[in-house]
Amino acid sequence: MNNPYLAALNTATKYPSIPTYHSLDPKNGGLLEEPTAFDGDVILTEKVDGTNGRIVLFPDGDFFIGSREELLYARGDRIGNPALGIVAALEPLAARLKPRDEHRQILVFFLEVYGHKIGGAAKQYTGSGQVGYRLFDIACLLPDVLEWDRTQISAWRENGGQRFCNEATLQRAADAEGIELTPRLETVPAAALPSDVEGMAAFLAGRLPVTRVALDEGAGHQPEGIVLRTTDRSVIAKARFQDYARTLKRRR
């Protein structure tokens, strides 16, 4: 991306990495008996297996649409890249979003776009070629960040610089904009979370036996996993079925 401003915007609005609930073994990619520490209430949401999309909304109503790694589209077709079907899925939503921030901040809506030909799990969500999206986070940032060096922006992002909505604010924003969230499965006390790998594998199976975001009757319905987060989003982690199945198979 040759335009310095767009490069900075892209870097500042990428979604940060989410750790796995159990640490990954750097030697073989398996899970270690080292769980993420949670306190208080923990919200469990379905992790949808599609492709990460983002809508970057400016205070004046201008917007950009991006994938996980790059900006794909801007209002007025100033950028045009139809990659992964993200723009087709999200442009109608982006066009109707209304800036609501009184502090003149940039809002970033993070959504999972899934379904027809999107990712290896597309058939788990649709058998008739449908595409859907679900909102899973909203962050805000001040325009001043875009004046920083890109290396500085990357470090800021990966170290929690983006300010994400807490659960209550995220719910209100989703309701106000008429956007469906990733399914909320349950809220549990941190003490109820299994600390061992085998226990978490059983925990996942009990909480999410089938996906809750299937788009039609022909879907395979196999879920990817669960995202765990505190109500204030200060701690967040992911737990994927395949990671636990692979680890337990290797142990046996």
Rank of each mutant, 00 (worst) to 15 (best):
L9S: 05
D60P: 00
F58C: 10
I55W: 06
V235W: 09
E180W: 06
R96K: 07
G129I: 01
I138H: 04
E198I: 06
E198P: 03
G225E: 04
H103W: 15
P143V: 12
A245N: 11
L6I: 11
I79S: 00
T45H: 10
A83S: 15
F241A: 12
P16K: 05
T151M: 11
D216K: 07
P99W: 00
V42W: 07
E180D: 04
V113F: 01
V48T: 03
H103C: 06
G218K: 12
I18D: 07
E34M: 11
E180H: 07
R75S: 11
R172C: 08
T230M: 04
V145G: 06
L185C: 11
A95V: 02
T169C: 00
P194G: 09
Q171H: 15
I43M: 13
Y5D: 05
A174V: 02
P143R: 12
P19G: 11
E224V: 13
L185P: 00
Q105P: 05
A37H: 15
G40Y: 07
L248E: 03
H116I: 05
Q162Y: 13
I226T: 12
A121T: 08
T13K: 04
S23L: 03
D137Y: 12
A168P: 10
Q162L: 15
A122L: 04
E180C: 12
L57E: 03
L248Q: 08
E69Q: 15
I153E: 07
F58R: 03
P19V: 14
A95T: 09
D39F: 13
R184T: 11
E167I: 14
K14W: 08
Q242K: 15
L84K: 14
P183H: 02
R100W: 10
V210M: 09
D216G: 10
L208Q: 00
K47D: 08
D216N: 08
P209D: 00
R229S: 13
V48G: 02
V108Q: 11
R104D: 15
F38S: 01
F38L: 03
I65R: 10
P189Y: 10
I79C: 03
G206E: 12
I226M: 06
P59L: 11
R172D: 02
F136E: 06
W148F: 13
S154I: 01
D39T: 15
S154E: 14
T126Q: 08
D25P: 06
L170M: 01
A219D: 02
I18W: 03
F110M: 01
Y15G: 06
K123G: 04
N10S: 15
L93V: 04
Y5V: 10
P194W: 08
F58T: 08
L90W: 01
V131D: 11
G127H: 06
R233D: 00
A94P: 05
E46W: 10
S23G: 07
A95C: 03
R207A: 06
V56M: 07
E102V: 12
R78H: 13
